[in-house]
């Protein structure tokens, strides 16, 4: 057991856990923050995407010992009351179906926009490549990212 201190959504947290426990399970089982989802446990589906010191990472691949002293932002802390441009765009495009992968998609998209304020389709293809959606909301995700950037989306519109 280790004592680990870090910050989540602006609040200081201290946990006594197995230092190898992934951040994902610390958030979900220990701190009760369940917005970050478990999808594969192998870092290949993107469901558990969140921000660690501003970078999009996979919480299932991040042992809590590596989080000590760092700042975590989860979907619950992305904005107050869902007003982040990405969240608003997600609602406008009615992106979600089952919704399970969407917190990870949104966190990945918010990070992508922080690097590319006006991403091209190619930037989106690359930036969202590791986030799987089984319901197939990809085209709406693409449009929502363009919308959040204040750009036009041509996908799915009649030619």
């Amino acid at each position: 057991m280790s004592h680990v201190e870090f910050s989540v959504n602006g609040f200081s947290k201290a946990v006594e856990v197995d230092p190898d426990m992934p951040l994902l399970w610390v958030l979900r089982d220990v701190l009760g923050l369940t917005g970050t989802k478990f999808g594969c446990g192998a870092g290949v589906c993107g469901c558990c995407t969140l921000h660690l010191n501003g970078e999009a990472i996979r919480a299932c691949q991040t042992p809590i010992k590596e989080v000590a002293g760092k700042s975590v932002t989860t979907i619950e802390g992305l904005s107050k009351d869902g007003v982040h441009p990405v969240q608003k765009a997600w609602i406008e495009e009615d992106v979600a179906q089952c919704g399970y992968c969407q917190p990870g998609q949104i966190m990945q998209a918010a990070w992508l926009l922080s690097k590319h304020p006006h991403p091209t389709d190619a930037d989106i293809n690359e930036g969202m490549a590791e986030n799987i959606c089984r319901c197939g909301t990809y085209n709406r995700i693409r449009c929502a990212i363009h919308r959040a950037a204040g750009d036009e989306c041509a996908t799915g519109k009649e030619a």
């Binding site: 923050l33 917005g35 989802k37 979907i75 609602i91 979600a96 969407q102 917190p103």
Partner: peptide, 27 residues
């Protein structure tokens, strides 16, 4: 009509089966 669960989904408030926890529960 946009889905009613949309706002809960995009803020992480939506509860899926995996997210539930009862007092005294074991995993």
């Amino acid at each position: 009509v946009k889905r009613l669960d949309g706002p809960d989904i995009v803020t992480g408030r939506a509860q899926f089966g995996s997210d539930l926890k009862l007092p005294g529960m074991l995993y």
